[in-house]
Design a protein around this nucleic acid. Structure first.
Lengths: 148, 148
DNA sequence: CATTTTATTTGCAAAATGCAATTTTTATTT
DNA sequence: AAATAAAAATTGCATTTTGCAAATAAAATG
């Protein structure tokens, strides 16, 4: 069927998914936040009161760049930063109601678009893909030491 | 099994694949080129004598930024730019031998790492994943109007 | 032949990046 | 308990990246 190697297939899917991310980020918030800021919303929403470092590490970005992006999100009213009750060095991140709203909108839009993509497949293929993404997550998590 | 929604699963896989990309790019060329330049190598290698615009469009990047990144790749000896024989406005891109070598190294490294990730799966799951990436590519290609 | 369109490049200003150094707080050592 | 080291986060600063607007050059259109 396809003559492309594994890397090529992954590369193209990742690229197209990246386009979808940009598109949904734009659609949901105009130009109020950029894509890397939407990644921060996603990760803060996923984790429970993470520290700055937690999120920066998860996203694989430099902590100093991250610090400034978070400040931008705070200024825009999407994120809160509260000192850790037992360790004043640490600042915990959370989403404001506005931030939760935006993150929810983006998540919705992304899921809708992914549904639309998967709707091209028959039920069996669809299940195959869904299962594969889970398999991939598990396998990649185990192999995390490969890159970072 | 997993309680994450579709978007979350995709987001994490895409993120991890991005890490892999950075890692392989670093491993193969030190700091001689950056990740977006490696994307250019990948795309120029895939297409047959594409124009500037062809590649910029495929990668979804602004043509002016692209123009400068290509210039950097030319200066480093990875890419050639030759005028289109029938339309002097158009410049065709190709890889030098050095560029082909680097692209090949990165491709190799990426495939090896992906193999290592998939090696955690049994044969059936592995086939499931491989087939899914192909299915996804096809479905995403058809739905391309969604975002760009 | 004049005008428009297309491909690409540059000017320029804004944004993002990351290293080094700093500040603040906690942990460790003696 | 004082001194030192380590950790979390921020800021200074210089470099790189970005993208819009304008410019250039060549082809297409009228």
């Amino acid at each position: 069927m396809s003559t492309d190697n594994l890397r090529t297939l992954f590369q193209l899917v990742a690229r197209r998914y990246g386009f979808l991310n940009e598109y949904c980020c734009d659609t949901c918030c105009g130009q109020d936040i950029n894509v890397s800021q939407s990644h921060i919303l996603f990760e803060v929403s996923r984790q429970h009161n993470p520290s700055m470092r937690d999120v920066a590490n998860a996203l694989g970005v430099d902590i100093t760049t991250f610090s400034r992006q978070v400040k931008a999100l705070i200024d825009k009213g999407y994120v809160l930063k509260t000192p850790h009750p037992e360790d004043q060095r640490v600042h915990l991140l959370s989403l404001t109601e506005k931030g939760k709203g935006l993150e929810h909108d983006i998540d919705d839009e992304m899921n809708n678009n992914l549904e639309q993509i998967l709707s091209q497949l028959n039920d069996e293929d669809r299940k195959t893909v869904t299962k594969s993404v889970e398999l991939l997550n598990t396998a990649m998590k185990k192999t995390e030491n490969l890159c970072c």
